[in-house]
Every structure is written in structure tokens, then in C-alpha cells.
Nucleic acid binder design. Structure first.
Lengths: 341, 341
DNA sequence: ATTAGCACTCTGATAGGGGGAGTGCTAATT
DNA sequence: AATTAGCACTCCCCCTATCAGAGTGCTAAT
């Protein structure tokens, strides 16, 4: 693939920006008129033809203007859109809102989602920060009935899990409390796998409970247990590209299928640091064909990390949304570090 | 309002059933042909006119057939649709699926939602069973950093809450554990209000923690904290009445607005026992104009109760869905009682 | 390499014209 | 008094034709 000439880049750049703005295919004439490129429409047409052959643009049909392909957007995000910092005034406004709110994780998450959604007019995604390799902190055993015990565990990152377990030997509350204390001493600060191996050395009731605990800890790491909070999906549907009914179904389908978005988000955001932009699913997630994700990890690196980001149509203002997500991730990181260390 | 004659009832009955089936307005001719009413179309037309004047039917426009109004559906549900039990074969199938699955509350909830959705082709709503007036069981204090403590509480019904609290006086883990034990002894089996009054008699750290606990318990009772699980909303959008874009937005809007559905569901289902059918929001919830809810409470009466149900378009097969929800509520009640008592 | 010019293509909006389904009314019938 | 047949009327929906507009692709000239 030969590299793009400077003018071709300018043309692509303008088409992407214009299309993001107007949602209508942009033709050679409007292009030459609106951007001060000193060439005629015919020249631009030739460039457009080449860009199309290289896969950066498409036609909806003969005789409509060009629209960017996912590849075109990717080129734009990678090479053309120089990333600018979020304006100070907006940063101030956001921080102000965080100061208004209780120092409470759940509230931060909700606020982050609400701010992202309202400032970008697309859907936002936020997870709570969790430890990469969670470590056991404490377990609590509550007798619910004859043989049934509610096992609730707290991990070092503050994550909680619970499950009702049927014990093979029934116990009253007092011995249970003793068992819990023993387990807490034995398992403190262990990872899930370590709990599991430790379990094999224990006796009946304790062994059973330890295995349940190991299982709960393993579950906490599964992507579909990520607890991905979603906000503002109605905004996506307001975009003109989702006027068609079958597109709407695709949105709702992705929204609903349990664990689908979670695993995609986990894979993307946890793979690398910095803002990740995934446009149109990139062969890896065909059901995301019509969507772009702008995600960033936040938290204390190598310890507790969460994800914030956006999901929207391909045609989204990347040059605004990327700095937005980037700033929000920084802010959340700062908050988490202040709180958890 | 004069009562309906027998033939008028038959006409209304047929129109509702036919419209539910076909989603197209039904005219006088198709009516006389398909149902063995021994009268001519002109007679039926007269009846239809009267039914329309009384508010049970509408026209989309002159010279289309009639469609039921919300009032028409309500009459149908209340007086015409005699409720039949779910066929034994289906009951068997459902129970079988519950036996396949671990005896775990979360799994039951997910399964109930999935079954309701797949067997009715509409959206389903399920909440976990919670105590009407939750009572404190145990609290756990985990030191997270200098002055911050993770307070996690378990209520008698197995509900869990957590919050990070900044203590005025910092403490190490060991005194915290002692504090927790003291609090657990002091607050055992108290309701939220009782915890609150008890808090005023305590000293600094304990008082602060007890107040946080009372606050957490109060929050657990707020409708928007209901944890309403939603399944199959994509099914609603497949219905022909939601082809229009602005209707789709209304669906997603209701789905998203935090706490909206929760409070509606709470108010309806917790008001009375038995299956509650709310058609078109009934003046009370105007944003539900286009939807019907079929909800039922389940659980151990006066103790732990949850809600199962359906949400769909007005035009839904009530004669199938009501028994469906009714059966599911019975089944869940049985499971909960087996488990929790 | 660029450009002006031109033929061609496709969309989207607009208007017109049946066909069809269904109503509402009236007068006749039972 | 209720029912019915008949008929005029209304409105939707689908199909078609038309036309302006926008944009392309090609070619020949610069």
C-alpha cells in the first residue's frame, strides 16, 4: 500500500471532519468550496477515486458523495487528528462536579458516566476499579436455615461476593463464627488459586467453604462479572444512522446479550494503557461493525484498575471524545489513588 | 356508564383477540366471517360504534378497522379473558430447567428472566427477594487506608451493602475488629430506624459507623435500589408497533432513566398480592402509555418478597402471559421458601 | 498534473391515479 | 325495535411518472 500524498491526506481529513459534522456524504464540489484547497473539484474527484480504491472511502451509491470507511476513520484517528487537551473551562467544570459529590465510589462511577454521556451525546461505559489479581480479605458466614449458609466475602479491593451454600453438616451460628475466624486467619491475603490449593488441606466443612470462596474469587475475574455500568444509550439511537429498525435491534441486542460488551471492553481496555480507539470492531468483533469504542484504563497501575469510555456510531467526533475520555481516566485515577492509598 | 350487552362483549372480545393476533385493525366484515356470530356486518358495525363511543375501541382513521383502547384491554383482562392454568407440559419444562441449575438465588433470577422472555417474546423483569423491613445482621469493617474504612453490611435477607467511610479518628485493623464485634452485638436484628436511634447513644467512632449503617439500610429500601433485572427488551422492539423511531426512543428512555422502572414496579407489585396487570400506565405513569405490565409478587408473604413479571406493548397475549407470570411467581415462592426457611 | 465540460446515474420529493377496505347512513325487512 | 342490504363516501396504500439536484467518471484541452 503506497503512502498517501499530502493533498490526499487533506482531502481525507476534510471528508472525515465534514461527514462527522453533517452526517451526509460529502461531494467534490462542497469540498472545494468549503476548504481552501487551491484545486478544482475535478482534481479532488480524482483523489477521492484513489482514496476509495485504497479503501478509505465509500459510496453509498453512484452519485452521492463519499463517506469514510472504518479504515478511513482509523487513518484519521491515527495520523490526521492531532490530539488536543480538553479546554481548561471544561476540566474545571468536571472537577467541580466531582467535588460536589460524596467521596463514594459508586457515586463517582455514576457521575463519570453521566458527565461523559452529557458532554459527548453518546453512550458511556464505566466499571468500578478492581484488583487485577484479587486477594482475599475476609469472609462472613451467616446461617440462613437448617443447612444453608450465606457466604459473603470481601476482597482487598473492596469487591464483595456472596453465595448461599448448602453445608453437608448443619451448624448453628456460633460454631460458624468460629469457622469464619479460622478461615479468615488461614486465607488472609491469598489469591484465588492459593485459596484453592489451601482448601485441599482442610477438613470437611472448612474445605467445602474454602472451595466455594475460591470459586467466588475466580468468578470475580470473569469478564462478564465486570459490572459494566452503561449510560446514555438512548443517545446513540438519536443519531441519524440508526433510524432504520434493524440497526436499532443491533444496538439493543449488543446492550442486552449478557457479558458480550463486558468481555469486549475487558479485552480492549486491559490490553494496553492509554486511550484505545476501536473502530467498527476491527474483524475481531463483527457485531460491533457499526460502532466505535473509545476506552481508557484508570486506577493505580498494576493494582486496582477500572475502565471508562464511550460507545457510539462510527461517525463520532473522535477529536473531541478522545481527549474527553483521556481526561476522565486521569481524573478517576487521581481520585482512586487519593482514596485507596 | 351502562353495562355492555352480551353481543357487545362478544364483539369486544373478538376484536381484542384478533388484534392481539394480527396487529392489524379489525373490520366488521372480517369479524362476522371469522367468528360464528349469527349477525350481519351492519349489526356489528352498530355495536362497534357504540363500543367506540363508550371508549373501548378506536379508529386509527376513518375507514380502517377498530383497535382496542387501553380501556378495552382492561375490560378484556378483567371480564372476558377467563384465566386458564398453564399447560402441564410447560410447567414441567420450566421446573425441569430450575432443577438443572445450581441452588443459587442469582441463577434462579437469571433463569426466571430468561424463561419468561423466551416463552412470551417480551421483556421480563425480575427482582431478588428482599425483606420488607430489613433487619441488621452483621457488619464488617475493613481498613482500606489511613482514615478510610470499608463498611460492608449483611442484612437478614442476605442483601449486602457497602460503603467507604472516612473516620474522624484513624484506627488500625485490630481495634476495628473489636468495634465491629461490639456493633454486631449492639445492633443485631434491629431495623434501620432502630439502628438510627441506637446510634445516638454511642460514642464517636461507633456512633459514626452506626449512622452510616442506618443510612445504608435506609438506602436498601429505596425503590431505585431495587436491583431490577431486565431481560429481552430487544423483543419489544421487534413488535410492529415500535417500528417508528420515536417509539423506540421511548422504550430506551424508560429502560435507561435510572430508578424509573424500579419505582413503578415497586409501587404496583408491592401494593397487592396476585398478578397485577397495568395497561398503558393508567393515568398514574404517563410515560408507560404504550406499555403494559404484568407483575406478581413472590416469596414468603410479609417477610422476604420479590417481583417477577413482564413488560410489553399494550397488544400482548394477556390470556397467555397472566398465567405464565402467575405460575412463575408460585414457583419462585416455593423455591424461596424451601431455601430460606 | 490539472482542469473544464459533458453525459450519465441515482436519489428524493412531489403529484396523480386506481384498488381496497371499511365506515356511516338510510330505507326496507322481520 | 332490532336487524339487514345497499350504497355513497372516505381514507390509506401502492404503484407510477416526473423532475430537479447533486455528484460522478470520462475525455480532451491546457
Amino acid at each position: 500500500m503506497e503512502p498517501l500524498s499530502q493533498r490526499e491526506e487533506q482531502v481525507l481529513d476534510f471528508i472525515v471532519r465534514e461527514y462527522i459534522d453533517t452526517a451526509t456524504p460529502v461531494g467534490s464540489k462542497t469540498l472545494t468550496e468549503h476548504c481552501g484547497l487551491g484545486v478544482s473539484s475535478a482534481t479532488v474527484r480524482a483523489d477521492m477515486g484513489r482514496l476509495e480504491k485504497m479503501g478509505y472511502l465509500t459510496h453509498p451509491h453512484t452519485s452521492a458523495g463519499r463517506t469514510p470507511t472504518p479504515l478511513g476513520y482509523r487513518y484519521f484517528v491515527g495520523f490526521l487528528m492531532r490530539e488536543t487537551a480538553l479546554p481548561l473551562s471544561e476540566r474545571r467544570m468536571i472537577e467541580h462536579q466531582f467535588h460536589q459529590v460524596d467521596r463514594d465510589l459508586e457515586q463517582w462511577i455514576r457521575l463519570a458516566g453521566a458527565i461523559l454521556t452529557s458532554m459527548t451525546d453518546t453512550a458511556s461505559l464505566v466499571t468500578a476499579p478492581t484488583a487485577r489479581r484479587p486477594r482475599f480479605k475476609r469472609a462472613e458466614l451467616v446461617r440462613i436455615s437448617e443447612a444453608n449458609v450465606l457466604v459473603s466475602i470481601v476482597l482487598q479491593d473492596g469487591t464483595m461476593r456472596r453465595r448461599i451454600v448448602s453445608l453437608s453438616a448443619s451448624q448453628t451460628q456460633d460454631p460458624l463464627r468460629a469457622t469464619a475466624e479460622e478461615l479468615n486467619a488461614l486465607l488472609a491475603d491469598l489469591t484465588g488459586e492459593e485459596v484453592k490449593t489451601r482448601a485441599s488441606n482442610l477438613t470437611s466443612t472448612q474445605a467445602q467453604l474454602a472451595e466455594e470462596i475460591a470459586d467466588l474469587m475466580a468468578q470475580a475475574n470473569l469478564p462478564h462479572d465486570l459490572e459494566l455500568h452503561r449510560y446514555g444509550f438512548a443517545n446513540i439511537l438519536r443519531q441519524p444512522e440508526f433510524a432504520a429498525a434493524e440497526k436499532v435491534e443491533r444496538v439493543v441486542g449488543i446492550l442486552e446479550e449478557p457479558g458480550r460488551l463486558e468481555s469486549i471492553v475487558a479485552e480492549i481496555a486491559l490490553s494496553r494503557a492509554g486511550v484505545q480507539v476501536v473502530i467498527g470492531g476491527e474483524e475481531r468483533w463483527p457485531q460491533m461493525r457499526d460502532f466505535s469504542l473509545v476506552l481508557a484504563r484508570y486506577g493505580a497501575i498494576r493494582r486496582t484498575t477500572g475502565v471508562v469510555g464511550l460507545m457510539g456510531p462510527l461517525r463520532m467526533p473522535y477529536n473531541r471524545n478522545v481527549p474527553m475520555v483521556s481526561y476522565m481516566a486521569d481524573l478517576m485515577s487521581r481520585l482512586v489513588r487519593e482514596r485507596y492509598t
